[in-house]
Computed example of a mutant assay.
Amino acid sequence: MIATRNHTPNADFVFVGFSEKKEVQAALFVVFLAIYLIMLLGNLVTLVLIGWDAQLHTPMYFFLSSLSFLDICYSSTITPRMLSDLLAERKLISYSECFTQLYFYAVFSTAECYLLAAMAYDRYVAICSPLLYATSMSSRVCVLLVGGSYLAGILNASLHVAVAQRLSFCGPNLVDHFYCEGPPLQAVSCSDTTLSKMLMLVVVGFNLFITSLTILVSYAYILATILQLPSAARKRKAFSTCTSHLAVVTLSYGSFAFVYLGSRSRHPQKLDKVASVFYTLLTPTLNPLIYSLRNKEVKAALGRAVLRTRPART
């Protein structure tokens, strides 16, 4: 009777979280809340600044504002629930809430991978074919690239959730994680998860392969073009516009590959949780800092915004 009841959508899941010690949970709550607020502030400032300053109305900054919006949605799918669970006695989540979280997490994480690939393509066109940049990266093309990223996220999320909902959960549904994700759910399932694991490996591997290949090919051409530039100043400028994006890509893809493509027997679940915190909270926080601190145009726009908001002296 218990197995039948828990197989239905009325089943609940209980997160193990990070630690059972209340002092550790309280400390993590303060740290994660501070990081989350910094993430919100940094990405909201980026969104407002790009929308407000006409000099930043270019394809590059359109993609950057789209990345900031995605980061807010992506992190907010996980972090508020995680913060509330750190203060809760029992970290309980219903079946429907769990799969809703899994769906939106998969949408935004997949869309971000494809958006990073679109940003690499944008840099390729800007540096390797500057005369064709205005036509190749028109407003319509930019919107299609961003829309395609979301479409890829929706298709991937729909497939993940459809497969995960076919799993049986016979209880106790104790999920050794802090949010609903494919591998931890497979670990507590009482049904055969071979097909689910293979499908996840294929789909995640395909998404990472296609997007990473696009990024690598784009930057191979970019590097070859930069090395042929006669001016050292132009080389430095070209490198500076690319290193920020490469840093973001390295942070995102490194933690993704560690969790999804690495063998789970090679590293403990605690390391998976650390990697998950990295790409759901730390990376969205670092993205606006990396772009703004290394980008002279963003810093100049921020300076203009500060000057305009100051009261005029009499």
Results as ranks from 00 to 15, higher is better:
186 Q>T: 07
268 P>D: 08
275 A>L: 05
234 R>I: 09
140 R>M: 10
104 F>L: 12
201 L>M: 09
119 M>L: 11
65 S>M: 11
184 P>F: 00
238 A>Y: 04
236 R>V: 11
198 M>C: 06
56 L>W: 05
43 N>T: 07
253 Y>Q: 06
38 I>F: 06
295 N>I: 02
58 T>I: 07
65 S>I: 00
143 V>S: 13
285 T>C: 14
261 L>S: 10
190 C>M: 08
45 V>L: 12
303 G>R: 14
6 N>A: 07
30 V>R: 13
263 S>V: 02
1 M>Q: 13
241 T>A: 14
206 F>R: 09
90 R>F: 00
291 Y>R: 00
54 A>M: 11
266 R>P: 00
176 D>G: 00
308 R>P: 00
307 L>P: 00
90 R>V: 10
255 S>A: 13
39 M>I: 02
113 C>F: 09
194 T>Y: 01
90 R>N: 12
173 N>I: 00
164 A>L: 12
284 P>W: 01
261 L>I: 08
286 L>N: 01
62 F>Y: 13
211 T>Q: 08
243 T>L: 15
265 S>Y: 10
65 S>Y: 02
238 A>W: 03
301 A>G: 07
85 D>H: 11
109 S>A: 15
134 A>Q: 15
45 V>Y: 02
74 Y>T: 04
304 R>F: 05
72 I>D: 07
150 Y>W: 13
67 L>N: 09
24 V>F: 00
92 L>R: 15
1 M>S: 15
296 K>R: 15
253 Y>K: 10
128 C>S: 13
47 L>Q: 12
88 A>Q: 11
292 S>D: 06
229 L>Q: 13
92 L>D: 12
288 P>C: 04
9 P>L: 08
69 F>Q: 13
43 N>K: 05
243 T>P: 06
15 F>S: 03
19 S>V: 06
51 G>A: 05
314 T>P: 15
83 L>H: 05
226 I>F: 01
216 L>K: 08
139 S>E: 11
121 Y>T: 09
37 L>P: 07
286 L>H: 03
58 T>P: 11
182 G>N: 06
156 N>H: 15
202 V>R: 12
116 L>F: 08
